[in-house]
Amino acid sequence: MSQIKPDARSTVSATDIAVSVRNVSKVYGDVQALKDLSLDFPRGELTSLLGPSGCGKTTLLKIIAGLLPATSGQIEVNGKTVTGPGPDRSFVFQDFALLPWASVIRNVAFGLELRGVAKSEREAIAEKYIREVGLAGFEKKYPHQLSGGMRQRVGLARALSVDAQVLLLDEPFSAVDEQTRRKFQEDLLQLVQNEKKTFIFVTHSIEEAVYVSDQIAILLPRPSRVSEIIRPSSFRDKGVDNIRRDPEYLDIVDRIWASLRSYVE
């Protein structure tokens, strides 16, 4: 059955931690968004951040990305303290953040372009990831010619093409319809297996978190801390089609809902 522990740090050894958040606090003016938050993200796994709206999930993700400074505490990625954005992390934005004046291939290659990779080389890499996210044939199209789901795939391909070890995804599937979303979730599981990268995934959806995660961190509302870490164990290998019927899956969904429902009034 499931291993549900308030603290999962004991289960993974320190060398297998890709990202480690230590006692991070964040204050915006008079709003304390995060308070003394500590959390480890095991290498090669997908960790979801789940919590009520406004609890600081985006804030935490941006601090890890180096886009926002923490008020106190520190972040370590592969043992190195984060001081700003770096090539070891890449971000998938909730609103895609594509360049509307650039074609799909230039958008996907944009991260490499900023890193000074030569045009032919970066376009070859971009083409590979465009194929990987299922957009082959759309290289020359522009973002306004794509659906929301396709745009998000472009954002994902861009994040993958810079080959960062850590991928930060802020509610990447919230702007797509339910069918697309399910397809994306399956693709994401595939991606975690293939890419051997560490994924940090913010979502509002309990089912989505349980479906895709190796580890789920439940955040309490402001000032936010980790209230619980859940590591689903038994259904991960049963194949994508069976997960949603698995008793453990249903158990965990119920359990998370029970602990979060008190904050939704």
Partner: peptide
């Protein structure tokens, strides 16, 4: 300008 475009450029290390 959309703030996330600015953040996107920063996150990929734009000078």
């Amino acid at each position: 300008i959309n703030r996330s475009l600015v953040e996107m450029a920063r996150s990929f290390g734009a000078s």
